[in-house]
Design a protein around this nucleic acid. Structure first.
Lengths: 243, 243
DNA sequence: CGGTTATTTGACCGACTTCAACTGCAGTGG
DNA sequence: CCACTGCAGTTGAAGTCGGTCAAATAACCG
């Protein structure tokens, strides 16, 4: 058992990087400007300066890009504990959006403070970089997902990713994963139409691999689901207490 | 006019970050272990440790991921001057491949040396991070590309990206862009079959927007090509001498 | 020149989209 | 209590974009 950590954020960092008291305190001190965001609202929009990083404290946030005619692609789902855009001020302006999938609680952290903490604590610098590179790794897997996998594989893969991450965070109780997504959002994440997503989802349910209702996902046969998705959790670069 | 820089690599960094003599020298000193890689060969494979960064000196390299059954997705094209995987040692092992599209000359740089240079020269640290985040930004645009754009738009977008980057590097002479790609590789970058890619390419040629032969691409109507691709070069985060 | 690999074309098929309508449900207000 | 509204999800029918199979050129290379 580790030191008790109160925030999901610090816990996530601590899972890879044992934290001294000073480091824990520095992390805690980053979380000051807290915002409550209603579901559907935009946390940050393309064109804005990248002068703040964002920590998701509660709820789910999506990173997305839009085409001028309204087509939307979701680029990743950000779960509690995720730190995004740290160090990104080396690029001038953001070219994507952060939008709340559920009602969410986020911390907005000026890049100067991220940099200051990173400068003082080299291991936290490394941990922040880790976070950023993991999100990159996930983005790459998503290119593979929308580019090569069939709709069924693709959906199965997304469900594997989400349940794996939720379980690692300890957010899944007894094999039941919180699943607040609208089908439109899943479709936008996979590059499918809502209607087709609905059908693919029905097939998955029908095949007995998952159970999905009341905003909760139960993976009934994780092994089979992973096999059909060609899911290999390596790309998440998450270590787990118990494999 | 800037100080003369001899490598494409240093020139690329210098385009954003004016370099002192000491910084230029430090960059030059990174380029020691040079490898010549024949077209088609693997520079680095999934599963290998991420203990080296790679600088592309000449030629074109692709980052790719494979599915167990052989389906391949190309995640980005790396052009001369590109530095990849710097700082990536915060993740243990790579989960993607680097493969030479053309015969290529690359420099293999131990992460320890990257870190040492970054520690000594904060502006280079920033520049290396910039490189990494730009590649991430490109990966995100590619998710949008394969997920939302139609095949025609998608191909047009890739051509816009490549010609824009080549021009910025000064590798395009008189509107003619070097274009050594096989159709199979373009197809794998866009998530299309070779056959369909061939047809989409024929349409593009037929519409008079581009001319493509003898491994050289001429963009005949850049404005129209960008419009059909919904191409906005912001995501490349490249500044240019002359717009 | 022969042998291999890349590109091109044709015919057919299937995955996915689009359009349209219907169901179920939660909230609201009469 | 029950209409009324709005939104998420579901289903059907028809069309299209892009894939697969097969084969014919065309380019490349030793």
């Amino acid at each position: 058992m580790r030191n008790a950590v109160h925030s999901t954020f610090a816990a996530k960092i601590a899972a890879h990087t044992p934290l001294s008291d000073a480091e824990s305190a520095a992390l805690g001190a980053l979380v000051t400007r807290i915002q409550i965001v209603p579901a559907g609202d935009t946390v940050a929009a393309a064109g804005e300066p990248l002068d703040v990083a964002t920590i998701v404290l509660e709820g789910i946030v999506a990173r997305s890009k839009l085409l001028p005619d309204g087509r939307r692609q979701i680029l990743s789902f950000l779960l509690p504990g995720d730190l995004v855009d740290a160090f990104a001020s080396v690029l001038r302006r953001r070219d994507d959006n952060l939008e709340a999938i559920t009602a969410a609680k986020v911390a907005v952290v000026p890049q100067t403070r991220v940099a200051a903490v990173a400068a003082e604590f080299p291991r936290l610098h490394e941990a922040f970089l880790r976070e950023a590179f993991i999100e990159t790794s996930i983005a790459r897997e998503w290119v593979l997902n929308v580019g090569q996998r069939t709709a069924d594989e693709s959906l199965a893969h997304l469900l594997c990713e989400l349940s794996w991450r939720m379980e690692t965070l300890g957010l899944a109780r007894g094999g039941v994963v919180p699943f607040p997504f609208k089908q439109q959002q899943l479709a936008d994440a996979l590059g499918l139409s809502t209607i087709h997503l609905n059908r693919v989802l029905r097939n998955l349910r029908g095949s007995g691999l998952i159970h999905l209702e009341a905003r909760a996902l139960t993976v009934l046969d994780a092994e089979a689901l992973r096999r059909m998705a060609h899911f290999n959790p390596e790309y998440l670069h998450l270590s787990r207490e118990a494999a």
